[in-house]
Simulated scan of single mutants.
Amino acid sequence: MRYILHSVTAAAVMVLIPAIAQAEIVTETVRYSHGEQAFEGYAAYNSALGSEQPTVIIIHDWDGLGDYEKARAEMLAQAGYAAFAVDLFGAGVRPQSIERRRQLTNALYADRDRMRALMESGLDAADNQSAIGADTAVAVGYCFGGAAALEWARSGADLEGFVSFHGGLATPDGQTFEQVQAPLLILHGSNDQVAPMSDVADLAARLDEDSVAYDMEIYGGARHAFTDWHASERYDASADLKSWAAMMDFLGQALNANN
């Protein structure tokens, strides 16, 4: 089923989520480290569903792990998944200025090995939470996080799937998708000025060349960051709800089939 609304908030998106009987949603901040640097993730899960639950790893946008990712994690917990939002910037590093956000993300784009290692550290931190089943997990990323999810997929990470919401789609020089171990889902707007349709076409060609299982949904007229309800000029309620429903279908196939 698809829902189309003209305006929506996080609460309205919840209409797509089936009610879980006797839901006992637990949320907690999780401190962990990579090398000598401290990081701070966020876990959300329904404690009534027991241990080792199918898990969604959330990768944040360029402003760091904040209220948006936490809300998405809680929505996933309401839907019956454990969720863990990883931190790629460091504890307390939540950049406010465009300049600082660009500096932090560019540093990770310039050091892809570190980006991959930080995501693996986040996955390890998730695995230390009893309710979270990191052995059965899908990575989901928003904007910068969408680009990071594709980077993680190219690394050959042993996850059940990877989802990019309006993410950067360009493939770095020298990289391929030959090592991808699981299906990809690309959710993108046709009017994305950051990752235009030429990037979508190039990505599809590369995925076809490397025989990767993938699906794409393109939302006509949707701009970059179309799921961000804080971005009033770019937020697209219809595309948000459709993409969330597409992700839930993907999770049902990738996680529940392996549960």
Rank of each mutant, 00 (worst) to 15 (best):
D202S: 13
A213P: 00
R2E: 15
M197S: 06
F89S: 10
I4L: 15
V180T: 11
A137D: 06
A254E: 10
A85R: 04
L207E: 04
S47Y: 02
R114V: 14
Q129T: 12
V140E: 10
R94D: 10
G122I: 00
M119K: 05
M115T: 03
G146S: 03
V15F: 15
G35I: 03
G221V: 03
G252Y: 02
D199I: 02
V15D: 15
A110I: 06
E217Q: 15
G122D: 00
A170K: 12
S155R: 08
I98P: 00
M1D: 05
R101K: 14
R223H: 10
R154A: 09
M115I: 00
S33A: 15
I57W: 02
G156K: 10
R154F: 06
A131Y: 01
P196S: 04
M216P: 00
R116Y: 00
A170V: 13
I4T: 13
Q179G: 12
Y142D: 01
A126V: 04
T29F: 07
C143N: 03
V26Q: 14
D215E: 13
A182V: 06
T171I: 14
A117L: 02
L16D: 04
D202K: 12
A23V: 06
H166L: 03
Q53L: 09
Q53F: 00
R101V: 07
N256K: 07
M197A: 02
A239W: 09
I218R: 08
L169E: 05
Q53P: 04
N259V: 10
G66L: 07
E36I: 09
A23E: 15
I25M: 08
D202F: 06
D124M: 07
Y81P: 02
L49Y: 00
M216D: 02
Q253L: 11
G50P: 15
V15H: 14
V26L: 11
R206M: 10
G167S: 04
A126K: 05
A139W: 00
F162S: 02
P183L: 01
D158N: 15
A257K: 10
Y3A: 14
L76V: 10
D249N: 11
A225H: 07
D192F: 02
I59E: 03
A117I: 05
D135T: 13
A231V: 11
V13Y: 01
V194A: 11
A44K: 03
A11I: 11
G145P: 05
T9R: 14
N46S: 12
S155Y: 05
A77G: 03
A225R: 09
D228H: 10
H188Q: 13
Y142Q: 03
Y81Q: 10
A254L: 08
L255H: 05
G80F: 01
G80K: 03
I59T: 07
A125L: 05
D111I: 00
D240F: 11
G156N: 07
H188D: 08
A79F: 04
Q129H: 12
